[in-house]
Design a protein around this nucleic acid. Structure first.
Lengths: 115, 115
DNA sequence: CGGAATCCCGTGTGATACTG
DNA sequence: CAGTATCACACGGGATTCCG
């Protein structure tokens, strides 16, 4: 149970911003400031932290261009890109079933309040 | 961005125990105490909470048998079962790439400590 | 057996300010 | 521009105890 790769992976995906960053990088290389604009409500700190974590596990590659002003590019690694198909499976499911889940939740809460 | 069904779904899947419970229920209906044995290191409180959350959003159905001793069965709803294929896609990916992620992380940490 | 209620702590996350 | 540093806090989650 401990060190289970499934659980480790899911903890990464569950860290609130990881998937959004991966999706933002799925189409093309992006700079730090571009990612901030892609994901408006992420804080600077969380974007940095999320990118470091993804880089650390080998899903994202970071390229520093020594220039003035400094420029840093982020892109998905091959392994990061291999994550896209299964991830899109989940996203498709969420898109199709999100409404049903929302409705079920409202009915459940309404019934709980009435009871 | 707010109320995005993808983010809501991922927050459920990211809540540490949700996926394990879904997997435990993927084969057959299970009782509360059976689930505790299936997932040894889950606390009673977290199992209850996870099941309530899954029931609330319509992924799990709960059936109470009024008897002595009481008996409660949990099973995946049709919507819950429809989640299995995309979920297995992620799990397969994690199984295949977990080792690579682990290695990348160790190399990253070693390089960080050396630098 | 299948919970609910309570207490408590670690840490994930946000806001803000500062730096190369 | 692309971060780092620090503080502050809510919240997830574990341990324990009690209930129908």
């Amino acid at each position: 149970m401990r060190g289970c790769p499934i659980r480790e992976t899911l903890e990464h995906l569950g860290s609130k911003w990881t998937v959004l960053v991966v999706i933002a990088l799925s189409r093309q290389t992006r700079r730090f400031s571009e990612l901030r604009r892609d994901i408006p409500d992420i804080s600077q700190r969380m974007l940095t932290q999320t990118l470091r974590d993804l880089e650390r596990v080998g899903l994202v590659e970071r390229e520093l261009h020594a220039a003035v002003p400094p420029r840093v590019d982020y892109r998905l690694s091959p392994m990061g890109m291999s994550l896209l198909p299964p991830l899109l499976g989940i996203i498709d499911w969420a898109t199709q079933n999100g409404g049903a889940m929302h409705g079920a939740r409202q009915r459940y809460d309404a019934a709980a309040e009435a009871g």
